[in-house]
């Protein structure tokens, strides 16, 4: 699936819910099902700045696709991380760089997009794109 397709799928899933509480409960479920990051990558240098809760993000390039794994010590943040991993993991660096995150608004989690928000969703996306940029540079060289 392309990034757009995964995003549409998520928008569809979240459209089933009528209120914020159901959306959050689903997000928490997504967080719980997130593939746990290999403990050896849960190091301080992989912590994303700008989060009140801790977020660890690891990426590697596998067969031209970026594979993200992540974790957080807060469950709502972990749900957001899970959504981002689902959207961006397994995609090419170029596709990640060309994508946007407008779907976050469409699934009713707009409040997490504010740059001042302490969960650092914006920082997470930025870090994912930076990783993609580094892999893209590697592929081009």
């Amino acid at each position: 699936m392309t990034i757009e397709e995964v995003q549409e799928e998520l928008v569809d899933e979240f459209s089933m819910f009528d209120d914020w509480m159901q959306r959050y409960e689903y997000m928490i479920e997504l967080g719980k099902s997130l593939d746990i990051i290999d403990p050896k990558y849960k190091t301080d240098d992989r912590i994303i700045n700008g989060c009140q809760s801790k977020v660890w993000l690891h990426s590697e390039l596998n067969d031209g696709k970026v594979i993200f794994t992540a974790d957080s010590d807060a469950i709502i943040t972990k749900g957001i991380v899970a959504i981002l991993v689902r959207v961006f993991s397994g995609q090419t660096p170029q596709a990640i760089l060309n994508s946007d995150a407008k779907f976050i608004d469409e699934i009713g989690l707009k409040e997490h997009l504010s740059p001042t928000r302490a969960n650092g969703l914006v920082s997470m996306i930025k870090q994912m794109k930076l990783d993609a940029m580094a892999y893209q540079a590697k592929l081009n060289s």
């Binding site: 914020w20 009140q52 807060a74 469950i75 709502i76």
Partner: peptide, 21 residues
């Protein structure tokens, strides 16, 4: 077993303003 940030986020959704961190 619950991160303070998670509690603060839910409280805000319910109109209750607290500080976390």
């Amino acid at each position: 077993g619950i991160h303070p940030y998670d509690i603060g986020t839910i409280l805000d959704k319910l109109g209750v303003a607290v500080r976390t961190g």
